[in-house]
């Protein structure tokens, strides 16, 4: 196993997630695309942690932190989407131009 195969897989996942964040209109699916990008970052961190045989396991521990923060992010993100839906009866990110100059 080479390190490059894992990092290139992570790059491909990140690019797919970026495509999803730009093209998706439904706010829940934008969040799902962000999760794909986070999975790409996690693969990157764990692969380098194993490659470097880090004594502090920093890559794996930061992956655990990312998982915890991502869970918090999804909870808050869905609460905000719920509030937007309650006020505007729509979860389409295109309609959210209230703060646009």
């Amino acid at each position: 196993m080479t390190i490059a195969q894992f990092v290139i897989l992570g790059t491909a996942l990140f690019s797919i997630g970026l495509y999803g964040v730009i093209t998706r209109r439904n706010a829940v699916l934008v969040l799902a695309s962000v999760e794909v990008m986070l999975a790409a970052v996690n693969i990157n961190l764990v692969a380098f942690d194993v490659y470097l045989a880090d004594q502090l396991y920093a890559g794996q521990i930061f992956t655990l932190f990312i998982i915890a923060v991502a869970a918090a992010e999804v909870g808050i993100g869905l609460a905000i989407i719920l509030m937007i839906f309650r006020n505007r009866h729509d979860a389409d990110v295109d309609e959210l131009d209230l703060m646009r100059y």
Partner: peptide, 20 residues
């Protein structure tokens, strides 16, 4: 994005193996 990063990764780490 994929092309640039994958090229940079292959250039920097290409062929380096994870200790089996």
């Amino acid at each position: 994005l994929f092309t640039v990063v994958a090229w940079a990764v292959a250039d920097a780490f290409g062929g380096l193996i994870i200790p089996p």
